[in-house]
């Protein structure tokens, strides 16, 4: 996908990556999607509080730049595997929020026809092979998808998202090792939000940076500020290029923070209010991105307001769509366990 950099001629080349590489329309679309992720999750949280959605959910509010930065350089038919904290990945990869809400409401119009819910949200048509309820469960699956890409010569690249907690699972080690020995077109993206549930990386992980572990698998390990869209996109772009040209995998550590609790049962006893406040007021990914967009003259305040309003409307309509959609028929309980043969 050749992206024209409209600013390239006019602006000095020391502009940050995203502002050299994407045109104004694309950058405004990134902002819209970051808002879409945040408002989607706020809407989901609200529906949950009001008892309209059951189960649990893991919100990625505060991590939007990471999802967008990684997915922006991906082609539509590139693939991802995602995590329990996967709403942002799903939207960033191109999902429609109305089908996501429908899934959360357990409706047949949802991405998984009401069988998966938040923790298994997927959009196979757009290359999202699914969130996962098992920490690190998607990492070997991504390597398998990358094996398919290489063998079938599809030219696809696969991104595996996972958290800092997942990097201590055996599956992480096994998967990264195999991806490296077989030089597969896969990018490992560790979204390090500082905690696996209540356990900080300092308490759980022997290395200072998760990217340091890349050395053990002879692949580049890159650390980025996960709250800076342009930094994430720049690292993702390089890693995806590397994967696509057959040079093998990269481990990107995207350092970020989640504002909300781990899930709906979290009492936030393992971190301070001050810590949360600090991230929210000084390092918010959307605030940072808006400031840059304004600085480089890509959008103004009224433009931002228009984006917010459009997103608000899309979310409202999506929730209405979900509410109005039909529930699954109990008679179809047995469906989708095995492949239905015509």
């Amino acid at each position: 996908m050749a992206r024209k950099a409209v600013l390239e001629k006019a602006a000095p080349t020391n502009l940050p990556f995203a502002y050299r590489h994407y045109d104004a329309g694309q950058l405004r679309e990134v902002l819209r999607k970051m808002y879409l992720i945040r408002r989607f999750e706020e809407g989901a949280e609200d529906c949950y509080m009001r008892g309209l959605i059951h189960g649990t959910m893991h919100l990625s509010i505060g991590q939007e730049a990471s999802a967008m930065g990684i997915c922006m350089p991906l082609a539509e038919d590139d693939q991802i595997t995602s995590t329990h904290r996967g709403h942002g990945h799903c939207i960033a990869k191109g999902a429609e929020v109305r089908k996501m809400f429908a899934e959360f409401f357990g409706k047949t119009t949802g991405y998984c026809k009401g069988r998966g819910g938040s923790m298994h949200i997927a959009d196979v048509a757009k290359g999202n092979l699914g969130a996962n309820g098992i920490v690190a469960g998607g990492i070997p699956i991504a390597v398998g998808a990358a094996l398919s890409a290489k063998r079938l010569k599809t030219g696809k690249v696969v991104v595996s998202f996972f958290g800092d907690g997942a990097n201590n699972e055996g599956a992480f080690h096994e998967a990264l090792n195999m991806a490296s020995i077989w030089k597969l077109p896969v990018v490992f993206v560790c979204e390090n939000n500082g905690y696996g549930m209540s356990t900080s990386t300092a308490r759980s992980t022997a290395v200072r940076n998760i990217a340091d572990r890349a050395a053990a698998y002879s692949m580049p390990g890159v650390i980025v500020n996960g709250n800076s869209f342009t930094e994430v996109a720049e690292a993702a772009h390089a890693a995806i290029e590397r994967a696509r040209t057959g040079e093998g995998p990269t481990l990107i550590e995207s350092k970020t923070y989640r504002y909300r609790g781990h899930s709906k049962s979290d009492r936030n006893r393992y971190r301070s209010k001050e810590e949360i406040e600090d991230w929210m007021s000084n390092r918010d990914p959307i605030t940072l991105f808006e400031a840059e967009l304004k600085e480089f003259g890509i959008i103004d305040d009224s433009g931002i307001e228009a984006v917010r309003e459009a997103v608000r409307q899309e979310i409202t309509e999506a929730i209405e769509f979900a509410k109005a959609s039909p529930a699954p028929d109990i008679g179809d309980l047995q469906n989708y366990v095995y492949t239905e043969l015509a």
């Binding site: 595997t81 094996l147 398919s148 890409a149 998967a175 195999m178």
Partner: peptide, 26 residues
């Protein structure tokens, strides 16, 4: 060797790679 693949001693990872490959066309 590309179609008769020796895996490392990685049962969990290897099984997962097979699952992912099966989901995506192999």
């Amino acid at each position: 060797v590309d179609r008769v693949m020796d895996t490392p001693i990685s049962e969990l990872g290897g099984a997962g790679v097979a699952v992912g490959a099966a989901m995506t066309g192999l």
